[in-house]
Amino acid sequence: MKLTRALEILPKSLWVFHCNSGSCNGCDIEIVATITPRYDIERFGMKLVGSPRHADVLLVTGPVTKYMTERLRRIYEQVPDPKVVIVVGNCGASGDVFYKSYSLDGPVDNIIPVDVYVHGCPPRPEAIIEGAAKAVLLLEKKREELLKAGASR
């Protein structure tokens, strides 16, 4: 199948949309650090994009606040398939220090399906890059599922 050949190239291009759903900003500056010269994720073909429609990966930081819940769902829907969700930071994974509140709906996997967790408060840029590498593998798997679903029709 020709498509399969084309798909082998896919993982080399990973476009990331970043959504802050209530994070303290610590993860966000580390994400910015990963696109800067020292860590430069563009050498792996990754880049941050400005619109969820262009993205392959949705990067979520923060425990989801009630205000952001609906918006996060909507962004998730706007990302075209195949897609992977990465949660960066402890608070998005479990709530961490924000374990109990009247204005939180999180953690993220309570709202949208999450594929990769990157732990740390905040994680180092290297850890974020590792998370993205895991996402690449998952993306490949998802694509195969897509292909199978397509073939069975």
Binding site: S21, T65, Y67, M68, R71, S101, Y102, S103
Partner: peptide, 11 residues
């Protein structure tokens, strides 16, 4: 504002 109001003062 308010999208990242986590209620820290209450916590």
């Amino acid at each position: 504002p308010g999208s990242i109001h986590r209620g820290i003062e209450w916590m």
